[in-house]
């Protein structure tokens, strides 16, 4: 009996770790091969197999070329500006709206909630045909602020995270503050907003990741690439003249991935928690 148990234990452990190692290998393989190629010189890339390690692990010349050619300095600056405003805007507006919807009883409350819920069903990219015309009419195409406004307007998840969070804060807290002579603004900004910190972090992570990686709309609405290139659209530089010069392309890809990797390593826990909370809650 004990022998049998021990045998199964070893077998189970073996299966567990070998499957984990295989899936991890598959998960990192595309990224690792990209790193290897990014570190190779032009001649090396042409003469060796893609999986052969580079001769010099510290060859960063491709990164410098990619950085310059794809105008990544400007791209990072633009993306940073976009991130700051989009995150600030969607958190402020999201939490303010959630405050009203969860604390004030009025006719139309349920209707407004349903409006947002229903909006989540409309596939975002599908409506770009007509959004484009509206952006055009409002003179918002090829402007950073136009893109920022558009990105702030399409955020349903964070509103729901905030509503859920408000519902776990006792209403008596607001009430006693009001009795003490606090205004509604005071209640929101001085008392409730600081308590929202965990929800704010969640929203910042979810919105931050999606904004940093967004490429479809930034390609559509920020067409003037010499002025309004973002980190993700800077990679489009490599589609035309570079053709198959993957040593430069891979370097560019790695540069855009680095900030995400650093943030991920630093705040793994928050990212996992954020995702779990941001998953559709029914």
């Amino acid at each position: 009996m004990t022998f049998k148990r021990r045998f199964f234990y070893i077998l189970r452990t073996f299966i567990k770790y070998s499957s984990l190692i295989i899936i991890t290998f598959i998960s990192v393989l595309p990224t690792v091969s990209t790193v290897i190629t990014a570190l190779k010189t032009k001649e090396e890339y042409a003469s060796t197999n893609v999986m052969t390690p580079p001769g010099n692990w510290l060859n960063i010349s491709n990164f410098i070329t990619a950085w310059k050619d794809a105008n990544m300095g400007l791209a990072f600056r633009n993306t940073l500006i976009i991130l700051v405003f989009v995150l600030f805007g969607s958190i402020m507006f999201g939490s303010m709206l959630a405050y009203i919807l969860s604390r004030f009883k009025f006719r139309g409350n349920g209707f407004i909630r349903n409006l947002f819920l229903f909006a989540a069903l409309i596939p975002g990219i599908a409506t770009q045909v007509t959004v484009y015309q509206i952006m055009h009419a409002l003179n918002l195409i090829n402007t950073l602020h136009g893109y920022i406004i558009l990105m702030m307007g399409t955020d349903v998840i964070s509103i729901y995270i905030f509503i859920q969070f408000f519902e776990n804060i006792p209403v008596s807290l607001d009430e006693s503050a009001i009795i003490d002579g606090c205004t509604y603004y005071g209640v929101f900004f001085k008392i409730l907003f600081p308590l929202l910190k965990p929800a704010i972090i969640t929203c910042m992570i979810l919105k931050g990741v999606s904004t940093y990686n967004e490429y479809y709309m930034s390609n559509l609405y920020l067409q003037n690439k010499s002025l309004y290139v973002t980190v993700s659209t800077s990679l489009y530089t490599f589609t035309g003249p570079y053709g198959n010069q993957y040593n430069y392309i891979c370097a560019g890809v790695i540069i855009t991935m680095l900030p995400a990797l650093i943030i991920f390593i630093l705040c793994q826990k928050q990212i996992y928690n954020g995702l779990t909370q941001g998953a559709v809650k029914e």
Binding site: S27, L29, S33, T37, V50, E214, T256, M257, A260, Y272
Partner: peptide, 28 residues
């Protein structure tokens, strides 16, 4: 967990380049 999860944080465009490279004849 981190290694399996990380691909989710890679942008679509970067993923496009990586997999064109990955699937090219004789490559990865």
């Amino acid at each position: 967990k981190g290694a399996i999860f990380f691909p989710y944080l890679i942008s679509g465009i970067a993923m496009g380049f990586m997999f064109r490279f990955f699937y090219t004849r004789g490559f990865v």
